[in-house]
Design a binder for these strands. Structure first.
Lengths: 235, 235
DNA sequence: AACTTTTGAGAGCACTGCTCTTGACAAGTC
DNA sequence: GACTTGTCAAGAGCAGTGCTCTCAAAAGTT
């Protein structure tokens, strides 16, 4: 299907709008994203932008999807540099990629993982697929390591009953995983903990407790998190 | 010093403003907090509110301090119900209190631990003290458990060198702690991980992966986190 | 009673998201 | 070529925002 000149022009304008939107997001945050300001930077009157983007929320969705994909691409690129079977290194590379990306793009990171933008509900049909790329990679790593039998045993804890196990079983079945439920639960914790650590750093929650070398602290955390799912320690 | 009627009236109005601000925060989020709307609810014209609160940012600071104290009070109340020496139970009570408070007050929680409000910088001199109450309790628990020698040994990992150790030593000395540096690092991770897990639940990051009983998953996480610093498991 | 301080009201500026109407222009059709 | 159709930008307008200013009334002080 050949692109008509119109389609080409429209696509270019859409790309310009998302690019300018990204810049404004970085400067003024999600709540400060203004369609009028985007229009000004685009060299166009505000109402013209509405021909391309139906509303401010639609622009926000565009940027959310764009952000998830940028983070996903960064993680994928980092994972591509690691030998296929070195699951410990893969986990660490994933964690580092998330941290580096978040620190480099705090506004986009905040849009994805910070407090929800008031009055905005991300449409699930557009955001879930790109939004689950990172956690998908994480379970791939854990499941792969489990399949390769390189995981140290994880004591399950005493909570092996109840509806939680059913939920985990359902997820396990849905994703076609081999890992036991207890390990899957650990994986969820590692997922949440990883983003918790990055959150604190990106959002400046460490605050007064200034760590001279935050990266070293993060590596320390990665080691502990890897141990939590039984991944072998580094060096 | 006796309060003059004017001082009383002023204090009452200030309380009314923060209360209404809290309500608006819960309904419209931090970015949607409007001084004009607060004035309307107060039954007063917008400029009158500026007699009490110098700017929108000042109102935000008021609400941040208020939020930190509310969370700190909730944690303290939860800790008071636990026997003094049961450090494992204290840790779990702290974690549960944070989660319950966050789920009950998602907007205030988001103001404290979500993405920073664009264009707003919390003045450190007013927010650090209440902002460190929870983490202060956490290190109290870990340090207390270490002092009582009830912690299982924690393998330090191989990263026992470098500037990180110096930073941790400095913090340790500043707070007058007895715990070894490696355990302190674990404590920081547990802190970040705890809020990471609560973040995901409060901000709806779990999204599609619906856990029928999120509290059970959280208990599972608490167990794992307790183990991370060597606190004894529950039941 | 006279004076000072505090307070609220109202107007105003520049900004926002969004809607509506109007007119210009290009693409396809008879 | 003339005509219809669809796309686009411009501008005005509405209701809301943060914030500043002036002015008059109220409250407290002497």
């Amino acid at each position: 299907m050949a692109q008509t000149p119109r389609e080409r022009a429209r696509l270019r304008t859409m790309e310009d709008i998302t690019r300018i939107g990204r810049e404004h997001l970085a400067l003024h945050g999600a709540a400060g994203l203004s369609l009028r300001a985007v229009a000004r930077d685009l060299g166009v009157v505000s109402s013209a932008v509405y021909r391309y983007v139906g509303s401010r929320d639609e622009l926000l969705t565009l940027l959310v999807v764009d952000g998830y994909n940028a983070l996903g691409d960064a993680v994928d690129a980092a994972l591509a540099e690691v030998p296929e079977q070195d699951y410990g290194a893969k986990f660490r590379a994933l964690g580092r990629a998330v941290r580096v990306w978040g620190l480099a793009e705090p506004a986009r990171y905040g849009l994805l993982f910070g407090s929800p933008v008031p009055g905005y509900n991300a449409p699930a049909e557009q955001t879930t697929a790109p939004g689950t790329r990172v956690v998908g990679r994480l379970v791939e790593i854990i499941d792969g390591a489990f399949g390769a039998a390189v995981l140290e045993p994880v004591q399950a804890g005493s909570r092996s009953t109840g509806s939680l196990m059913e939920d985990l079983s359902a997820i396990k079945a849905q994703l076609g995983l081999a890992v036991p439920e207890a390990l899957l639960a650990r994986g969820v914790l590692v997922w949440a903990a990883l983003f918790g650590a990055v959150n604190f750093e990106v959002f400046g929650q460490y605050g007064a407790a200034t760590f001279g070398d935050p990266a070293a602290l993060f590596e320390c955390h990665l080691d502990a998190l890897a141990g939590l799912v039984g991944l072998p320690g580094s060096g």
